[in-house]
Design a protein around this nucleic acid. Structure first.
Lengths: 206, 206
DNA sequence: TCGATCATGTTTGCACTGTAAACATCGCGA
DNA sequence: TCGCGATGTTTACAGTGCAAACATGATCGA
C-alpha cells in the first residue's frame, strides 16, 4: 500500500481500523495510521493527533506505532508530506483545467489558497513545521512539487521575464501569506477578494 | 508595571526571578512571567514554554500562574500580543527612519520579514495561533498596529491607487508569506533577495 | 489599632501524554 | 520443521496542564 515513491495509496486504505489478516498482525499499519491521521485532519479543524487516539482509531496498541515511526515527530512529518502531495495534485489539476498558460498559472495560485481554506488543519501541519534536514537531500519531499509547479508556471507563463526565480518566489510568498493569514483568522475567507489580490501579481506582469 | 494599554513595560522588568517584596508575594508576577516567556522565546529558536519551567524562571510555584492567566493558552496569547506589539514598534521605527513615503513603506515591509528572521520563535507564536475571538471586539490586539501601519502606508505612499485595501492586503500577504517560508526553512534567509521580492510589490505600483 | 476579607501564593493529587523495556505472536526462509 | 526477525502488546515512568484545599499577607472599615 505504499508506492515506490513513498506516497500512500489512499484507495486501498479504507482499511482504517480494518485489519487485513485475522489477528495479531495488522497488514499495513503504517498506511492505516497515516490514513487515520489524514481523516482526523480533514474533519475537525483543530486536529487532535495523540498517539493513543490515533492508535485506537486503527485498532492497535499505542506503542505499536513505534515499529513504523521513530517518534511522534516522524509520524507528523509523514502526514505533512502526504498533505503537500495532495496540494501538488490539486495544483496540477487546476493548471490542466485552466489550459495552462497565464490562466493556468493564476489557477494554481488560487488553488493554493483554497486548499488552505478548505483543509486548514492539513495545510497548517504541512507548512508550520520546520523542514526536516533529511528532506533537503533526499527526494522524498512532497513539497517540492508545489514550488516546482509555481516555478515552471512562471517561466512558461511569462517567458519574457528577466528574473523568473524572483518572480516565482514573489508569487509563492503571496499565496502562502494569504493562505496563512486566512488560516489564522487574520483576514476572512473571501474568494472574490483572493482572486483580486492574486491577480495583481499573477496576472499583472505583462 | 503594566501600562494602561496593557502593554508590558520592559524596562522595569529586569525583575525576572527577582521578587520585589521579600517573601510570599511576588510584586508583579504577571509582568515577570511575560518577561521570562519573551526571554525564552528570544534565546533558543525552539522555545519550551512549559508552565513549570516558566514558573521556575520566575521563582514561583507552577500553579501560581493560574492567578493571572485562566490557562496556558491565555498565557501564550499574552506573549503573542506582546510580540505583535514589538513588531509594530519596529515597523513604526523603520517608517520614520526611512522618512515616510514610498521608501518608508518599503522599509516597513522589510522590517516585517527581518523580524521574523531575527526572532523566529516570537514571530511564529504571534501569528501561528488562531486569533482569539475576544480580540476581535476588544481593542487589546497588538496586531492591529501591524496591519494598520501597512494600510496607512499604502494609502500615503500610493494615493492614486483605486483599490487601496486590495493593495494593502497584497502587501501584507507578500511579506507574511515570505516571513513564514523563511521561518519554516522552505527558503533561506537572504536579505538582498528579500528586498528584490518586496520591492516588486512595494515599489512597483507607480 | 485591630481584625476580617480578599488577592495572591503553595501543596497535593489526578488524568493524560510520549516513550522505553520486556514480552508475545506471527510469517518466512533455511 | 525450526528458528529468527518483524510486528504488536503490556507495563511502567517521567513530564504535562490543571483542579482543590490550604497558607499568607496586604488592605480597609470599625
Amino acid at each position: 500500500m505504499i508506492d515506490e515513491d513513498n506516497s500512500v495509496n489512499m484507495e486501498n486504505v479504507d482499511a482504517v481500523a480494518t485489519p487485513r489478516g485475522k489477528g495479531y498482525h495488522h497488514g499495513d499499519l503504517r498506511a492505516a495510521v497515516i490514513a487515520a491521521g489524514m481523516k482526523r485532519l480533514t474533519e475537525g479543524d483543530d486536529a487532535e493527533l495523540g498517539l493513543r487516539a490515533l492508535a485506537r482509531d486503527v485498532g492497535v496498541s499505542a506503542t505499536a506505532l513505534y515499529r513504523h515511526f521513530p517518534d511522534k515527530e516522524a509520524l507528523l512529518d509523514a502526514l505533512a508530506d502526504e498533505g503537500l502531495r495532495r496540494l501538488g495534485a490539486l495544483q496540477a489539476q487546476a493548471w490542466l483545467k485552466a489550459g495552462g498558460g497565464k490562466a493556468g498559472f493564476l489557477a494554481i495560485g488560487i488553488a493554493y489558497v483554497r486548499f488552505a481554506h478548505e483543509d486548514p488543519a492539513i495545510f497548517r501541519l504541512s507548512f508550520t513545521r520546520q523542514m526536516p534536514e533529511r528532506y533537503r537531500e533526499a527526494g522524498t519531499d512532497g513539497g517540492e512539487t508545489a514550488f516546482n509547479l509555481l516555478r515552471v508556471g512562471v517561466s512558461q507563463a511569462l517567458p519574457q521575464l528577466d528574473a523568473p526565480d524572483v518572480a516565482a518566489l514573489h508569487a509563492w510568498s503571496l499565496v502562502h501569506g494569504l493562505a496563512m493569514l486566512i488560516l489564522d483568522r487574520r483576514i476572512e475567507w473571501d474568494e472574490a477578494r483572493v482572486e483580486q489580490v492574486v491577480a495583481m501579481t499573477f496576472g499583472g506582469f505583462d
